[in-house]
Computed example of a mutant assay.
Amino acid sequence: MIQQTLQGIIRRLRRWLVWLWQQEGTPGQRARGVAAGVFSGCFPFFGLQTLLGVALASVVRGNHVLAAIGTWISNPITYLPLYWFNYQVGSALLDQGQNEFDLTQLNSQNLWAQGWTFSTRLLLGSSLVGASVALFASCVVYGWLKGPAKTRQRFYRRRSQSKHD
């Protein structure tokens, strides 16, 4: 039972990899699409990440479908750890002695100041983390797509065999 489930997951992964290889564009365009999506997915703009990723992919001439998929780096499972990490990175760079919020001192007069402090740290951290992760993801995808032809042939051969099983 477990072995069949594992084989099913591996089969789906192989199909997804073949689908990725068959996407429109050069390896560079596909890698730029993934990078645009991953970069956009690192920002806390819920509901707009996919639109931003596709728009950025248009600017860098990347694959739009892969850009939309790349935004899935942020999802309900990764929201909290990703944005917490982004905030920590921004705080480390902008540390001006006010790293923690004092909610006991929160009133209408300093609400905007604390909101601005939080937002700038989160957006700066999101920019840096997004750029770093996007660069890494695009290098991995590009290297994988430009990899040895034997690797691709092996996946195609396994795919055609699994269809006949």
Rank of each mutant, 00 (worst) to 15 (best):
Q49L: 01
N99K: 05
Q109C: 06
A134Y: 09
S162K: 10
A131Y: 06
V59M: 05
S160H: 10
I69M: 12
R11K: 15
Y142G: 05
A55F: 11
L123V: 07
G33A: 06
Q109N: 15
W84D: 10
W21A: 04
I73E: 14
V89Y: 03
G70A: 02
F101V: 10
A137F: 04
T71S: 04
G41L: 05
C42H: 02
W116L: 14
S160D: 13
H164K: 09
L123E: 12
Y83V: 02
V60K: 02
L94D: 13
Y156W: 12
F155C: 10
A68W: 00
F155W: 13
N107T: 13
R14T: 02
R14H: 06
G41A: 12
I2K: 12
D102E: 14
Q29N: 05
G8H: 07
K146V: 14
C139N: 09
K163P: 06
L80I: 15
I2E: 15
H64Q: 13
A137H: 05
F136V: 06
A35L: 08
I10Y: 08
Q49V: 00
C42K: 00
I2W: 13
A57F: 02
F101S: 15
T120P: 03
Q98K: 00
R30V: 00
Q22M: 04
V59G: 13
L13F: 12
Q4H: 13
A149K: 09
N99S: 10
L17T: 07
Q96G: 13
K150E: 10
V60C: 13
R158W: 05
Q4D: 13
S58W: 11
R11F: 12
V65P: 00
Q23L: 02
R157C: 14
V59T: 06
Y87A: 04
S91W: 03
S162P: 14
S126P: 05
T151L: 09
G28D: 08
V141R: 04
V141A: 14
R15T: 02
K163A: 15
T5Y: 13
W21D: 09
R15C: 03
Y87S: 01
I69W: 02
C139A: 14
V59C: 10
P44S: 06
S132P: 09
E100K: 03
F118I: 06
A35E: 06
G147T: 08
F46S: 06
G25Q: 04
L122W: 02
T120F: 09
G115A: 12
D165G: 15
L51W: 05
I69D: 04
R32A: 00
G147Q: 08
L145Q: 02
M1W: 06
V54E: 07
A36I: 00
Q3E: 14
L80V: 11
K150D: 14
F118A: 06
L128R: 11
Q105P: 02
I77M: 13
T78D: 15
A137K: 00
